[in-house]
Write a protein that binds this DNA or RNA. Structure first.
Lengths: 337, 337
DNA sequence: TCTGGCACTCTGTGTTCCCGAGTGCCAAGT
DNA sequence: ACTTGGCACTCGGGAACACAGAGTGCCAGA
């Protein structure tokens, strides 16, 4: 009973603070929420909550503000994800349906999510890790150059121009292409190195230098993981918000691929929503911010992650609802194509 | 003589204001620059300059600040582009040299430019308009789907998955690919529609539906100008600066492709540097900012533009030098590849 | 045409003061 | 054992005020 009410008080504090952006006091709390007790009682509860580290006061004799720990408890136990309205669902659907390729899906998704949540949206490209080879193409450009194109089942295309060690005619290229596709078709990208290891030895001796050159390009394009790009949108939404730390730091972090990658990557469970709040964040520049991340992908496999970054003081239920919904729709789109 | 000195005063005001970010007064001017006249004389000149609209005072009895018109005069007649240091040149060269494809060139360029100028860098992708077709590829994915790939001489690759109206075997695809390449190879993208107009009629009747489907995809990929993307970097550099208008508006404009496109696109002469200062800017949200734009491209043709956006109060000579240098190096890289 | 002098006008800063919101604690009530 | 009303206390933030300093405009003299 007592403990119950204290949690109710915490919930009320979080909700009020999120909506008003002002430290919330015992009196206002008693008025706005019908907790059935007097301000004095609430004060006692607040004292306990403060002692336990769930709330804090900016200065003596101001209202209370949730701490990161307080938000954490709120997210874990006091709130439930708020589903989107029908109108929003329809908007998502129709907006994503117009995408022409996977690049377009990603671009649209990130904008959509930013607009929906009025915060910064972050979308990671599908990773190669779970992709398979759909096709390898070798396109002669001139006598000694060709374009190497790798197409994966996720629709990603990696291409490179290759300088050849010798003049090569179309026939040999065609032959090599056929051989490559025969060994690689449908194979997971992680298995590619194994599959091609003995390939030169299976070719006539005069084709080996050519094959070696092309294989090195192929392997390089895998290692570089060029598709592990991350895009973001909605930076403008940060302008108003008061991140405890400077806006500059946050913008810098957003442009630092590595930081973003870690941010999205360090979530353990891909099938659920992951929330990281304020100081739980690995990167110093992102202390005043929280992120909500979900995995997405076609079918049962989660290929990549997307999420939203905003001030710690964000509306978690709504944000989580939006992220979850968008992740689902994107997965749906990917599965269909 | 008199007029000469007034211009010198204007130049001094711009330089001082840019470096100190504080309204500059007659006394400080007389001290820091040896103009050979007394503060009183300078005051008279300033009065005239103010009357002519080149400078203004934020409030009565504060120093003077250049107006947009003042900056304009400064850029046009009072300053000369400042070349980069040797170290900077080398840094640019080695940084750009590591690029693997054109996407990478663009990404690297925009970061480089942002870091170099400590402002927001904007780079437009090479436009299709001046590109030519290098190769068209049709890759069967399954019985009724194929991947359409268009490769241009700038190294750009456009790809689409096409749903076919009927089951098509490899032979017919190969034939169509050969026909397409025969008519389009080396042809400017703008001529493509003309070249393919009569193509269906030159094919056997049973191939026409297939050809029509693929041609519509081809034309669509041209119209959408998917390569006319614009990327930017260095938004964090705006955080400190005081744009007269809100930071939010600028960030919004930066994420609005259309606005950026117009911003870069409306420069008349591609071979020279274009500077647009404050209110000369078409878009309301960008009033407090200036942009410096240069064209770049391989060989003699200018393919696209790149530039820098910053507060009106920027160091024009240095910024212009950086933009010009980067544009040249990028052109060089593109020409070599 | 330039210069020194002088009176004037502001902004920005520092000081003081006070209001009010909010707290913590205590004693009384249920 | 909780809850509640009362009360003294604290502190931030805004209003009022004064003031120093930078800068200007103008005028008379060189």
């Amino acid at each position: 009973m007592v403990d119950d009410r204290r949690l109710a008080v915490l919930r009320a504090i979080v909700e009020d603070y999120v909506s008003t952006n002002e430290p919330v006091g015992s009196k206002a709390l008693a008025e706005r929420h019908n907790l059935g007790v007097s301000p004095a009682t609430i004060r006692n509860d607040m004292a306990v909550l403060e002692e336990q580290g769930y709330i804090a006061q900016p200065h003596t004799s101001a209202g209370r503000v949730p701490t990161d720990k307080g938000y954490r408890l709120f997210v874990d136990r006091l709130s439930q994800v708020k589903p989107l309205s029908g109108a929003e669902r329809r908007a998502i659907e129709s907006f994503l349906a117009g995408a022409v390729d996977i690049d377009d899906v990603v671009t649209r998704t990130v904008r959509l999510l930013a607009q929906l949540t009025r915060q910064v949206a972050v979308v990671q490209y599908p990773t190669l890790t779970h992709s398979t080879v759909r096709h390898v193409e070798l396109v002669p450009l001139s006598e000694r150059r060709l374009m190497f194109v790798l197409i994966t089942n996720t629709g990603r295309v990696e291409q490179r121009v290759v300088e050849l060690p010798e003049v090569v005619d179309e026939t040999r290229v065609a032959h090599l292409r056929a051989t490559l596709n025969a060994s690689l078709d449908g194979c997971g990208l992680t298995e590619v190195p194994d599959r091609v290891a003995d390939l030169p030895s299976r070719l006539p001796a005069e084709d080996r230098p050519l094959a070696a050159t092309i294989l090195s390009v192929l392997l390089e394009s895998l290692v570089e993981r060029h598709d592990e790009k991350i895009v973001f949108a909605g930076a403008a939404n940060l302008a108003g918000a008061d991140l405890s730390v400077g806006l500059r730091d946050v913008l810098e972090a957003l442009e630092e691929q590595v930081v973003l990658m870690r941010l999205l990557g360090e979530t353990s469970d891909l099938s659920a929503l992951t929330v990281r709040i304020g100081s739980e964040n690995p990167y110093t520049g992102l202390q005043g911010t929280s992120i909500v991340v979900a995995g997405y992908g076609s079918g049962d496999k989660q290929l990549a992650r997307l999420g939203v970054l905003g001030p710690t003081r964000m509306d978690y239920p709504v944000t989580m609802g939006a992220v979850r919904a968008v992740a689902r729709y994107v997965s749906q789109i990917l599965a269909a194509s």
